[in-house]
Design a protein around this nucleic acid. Structure first.
Length: 606
RNA sequence: CCGCGCGUAGCUCAGUCGGAUAGAGCAGUGGACUUCUAAUCCACAGGUCGCAGGUUCGAAUCCUGCCGCGCGGACCA
């Protein structure tokens, strides 16, 4: 949001933590020699306000490395350190902690900089990459259920974060659209006459279609034979069969896209590249592996035994490439997809957002790809070397009784039903809390709150752990929940409305003197916002969205404290009022930006 | 049997690369609404960080062993 009138000479503003890291690194090199220049200065926000605003923990570890007393190391470091323009004289405390306190005008300078920056001080990544993110991946001819929600939500958030940092993402929806089950599905379509138009069967009937086909397959040998023939026809590309198969996919995708739209997930049909897309190259993959000398014939099946994997009794664990009957399995498809992503899509990083139970599977697939030399193939395009492969595992959703989340009758929960219930519950809360809203507004608020609550509950705890699904907790207005964050945002908008201020007028290159910091709650709020860049970079590195949630909650808590302690509209004077309005604006934009990165919407009123 | 993951307050969860007195929310107790949305805030109380060793100035964090739970482990995905 830099304006033409802004002085060109204004140096690029770093957040204080980055600034300190750079200056400490320089001081380390100067005081202890270039051989220690790469040592991380270990700058962190102060653990306790009484220690100041930031702390450097490097003196202890450096002291060990150079065999000296850490406090003496800290003293030498401070002698070489040049931060007097921005910080008060640092203290050495305890075993060698260095405590730093920002000067007030530096803090004001930071706040002014945030106010004038659309990206809130977070620059794009230095080395943007092409990243393939594989997520969602529902099965054709089945309704989406809770088993798909985590991959879909987590993957979407990861994509948004990566794109915010300037990476190019290739979203991949690896649909389960191929396999022997399609023989019976298609044969059943023919039997029931659902062959000419999509609307002769409905999404809601897909599960029924699957169950009926399965039942026919199990109970009727003649049907089973026809189904097997149909698989052969499908695989050999019989046009009539393919047409029916296509119909099934289209009808299924219509259902998926409805769910994606409700979830505000950005997957589109262009992102679909299902299992069937790799069907033609499976034998090439096999040939690749054979020529790399990786394959072993074992009990009639073609296997790869990747290094470092043992099964029962410590015997090598196979990755089965081709079954003894000649058929291919998902390992082969995953290898084909991996090869395609490296070779044809030129990915520099590939992230697979799948259930934690597939961890070993992907580890084996990755190891096989490395042994086959595919990763080096990618290194030719990536000057930084190689392709980074990330499995992004997540745990199971549990009910409040600690067992996997099911309906009362023990069935898997359909995603559409889950969203319906969330909206109903949210609507009831909205009606109770804010009866002033008209019916239309209530419905809109309920929708945004409901979807936000479900997503945030999923994203806010460490994804690798199982999490306990609880309506009451996710829809609570207290604690680390989406409604609490959305409420903080709405309160800010309410201030602007009441003050009759257009927040965009607050972003026009304010000067540091426009943002004096007079209250500890104001200072805490600015310091929290200054942590944004570090948090987002950490998420892009670890692919752990819950770090952003933890941050958001801390931010909203800081704002709530500010809200209680620092009147905005009724500030002491115009200057303070304007300063606080600016703080409100950067807080609101930070909340909205972060929630947006999680795929969660905000509301001006709720 | 082998491998992977998890184990933090009554419950649900954070805890950065090993750093200062392990933090939140819920539930509990006690406070705060003529004041920008009380859908909120403040305070109090609550801990053998699964157990036992080890590494060191310092361990919830790293190493070893054990216990408990979950999940994988040959032609499903």
């Amino acid at each position: 949001m830099t304006t033409p009138g802004a002085p060109e000479t204004m140096p690029t503003m770093h957040d204080p933590q980055t600034e300190l890291s750079q200056r400490f690194s320089a001081a380390i090199a100067e005081a202890f020699g270039p051989e220690h220049a790469a040592v991380d200065p270990l700058i962190a926000p102060a653990k306790n306000p009484k220690f100041g605003d930031y702390q450097a923990n490097v003196a202890m570890s450096l002291g060990k490395a150079v065999g000296r007393n850490p406090r003496d190391v800290a003293a030498d470091l401070l002698a070489a350190l040049d931060v007097g323009d921005l910080f008060d004289p640092p203290d050495i405390a305890g075993p060698g902690f260095i405590n730093l306190r920002l000067k007030d005008d530096y803090l004001s300078q930071c706040a002014a900089s945030l106010a004038g920056d659309e990206r809130l001080g977070v620059g794009p990544d230095d080395s943007p990459q092409r990243v393939v993110v594989d997520y969602s991946g529902p099965n054709v001819a089945k309704e989406m259920h809770v088993g798909h929600i985590r991959s879909t939500i987590i993957g979407d958030a990861i994509v948004r974060v990566l794109e915010f940092l300037g990476h190019t993402t290739i979203r991949r929806n690896h649909l389960g659209d191929w396999g022997t089950q399609f023989g019976m599905l298609i044969e059943h379509m023919i039997d029931t006459g659902a062959t000419t138009q999509a609307d002769s069967f409905h999404v809601g009937d897909l599960n029924a279609l699957y169950q009926q086909s399965k039942q026919a397959f199990d109970s009727d040998p003649a049907f089973a034979d026809r189904a097997r023939d149909r698989v052969v026809k499908l695989q050999s590309g019989d046009p009539d069969t393919l047409k029916l198969w296509r119909l099934l996919i289209d009808e299924s995708y219509r259902h998926f896209s409805e769910v994606y739209a409700r979830l505000n997930v950005r997957l589109t049909e262009d992102d679909v590249r299902g299992e069937s897309a790799y069907n033609d190259v499976l034998s090439d993959v096999l040939a690749d592996l054979e020529s790399a000398g990786l394959t072993v014939l074992s009990d009639g099946a073609v296997c790869v035994f990747p290094d470092g994997f043992a099964g029962r009794d410590g015997e090598p664990l196979p990755l089965i490439i081709r079954k003894s009957d000649g058929g291919f399995l998902y390992a082969t498809t995953d290898l084909a997809a991996l090869r395609y992503r490296i070779r044809d899509e030129h990915a520099q990083r590939i992230a697979y957002v799948t259930d934690a139970r597939q961890k070993q599977h992907f580890a084996m697939v990755f190891q096989t790809a490395k042994s086959a030399g595919w990763i080096d193939e990618g290194a030719a395009q990536d000057s930084s070397g190689g392709v980074r492969l990330d499995h992004v595992p997540f745990g199971t959703i549990l009910g409040e009784d600690g067992t996997p989340f099911k309906t009362r009758s023990g069935d898997t929960v359909k995603l559409a039903d889950l969203l319906d219930e969330a909206e109903q519950r949210a609507a009831a809360i909205v009606a109770r809390k804010n009866p002033d809203l008209d019916a239309n507004q209530r419905r809109q608020v309920a929708r945004v709150v409901a979807i936000g609550a479900i997503k945030y509950a999923d994203l806010s705890s460490d994804r690798v752990k199982d999490y306990v699904f609880s309506w009451d907790r996710m829809l609570a207005m207290d604690g680390n929940t989406a409604p609490y964050l959305q409420y903080a945002y709405a309160r800010i908008q309410s201030i602007f409305a009441k003050a009759d201020v257009d927040p965009s007028t607050l972003r026009n290159s304010p000067a540091p003197t426009d943002v004096p910091v007079t209250h500890p709650a104001e200072k805490a709020l600015i310091l929290k916002i200054l942590q944004l860049g570090g948090v987002i970079r950490a998420v892009s590195e670890t692919l752990e969205p819950h770090r952003l949630c933890t941050y958001l909650y801390e931010l909203a808590s800081s704002f709530s404290s500010f809200y209680e302690n620092c009147p905005v509209i009724a500030a002491d004077n115009d200057a303070q009022r304007r300063a606080r309005l600016i703080l409100c604006d950067i807080t609101a934009r930070t909340l909205k930006t972060c929630l947006g990165l999680l795929g969660i919407e905000t509301l001006d009123r709720m």
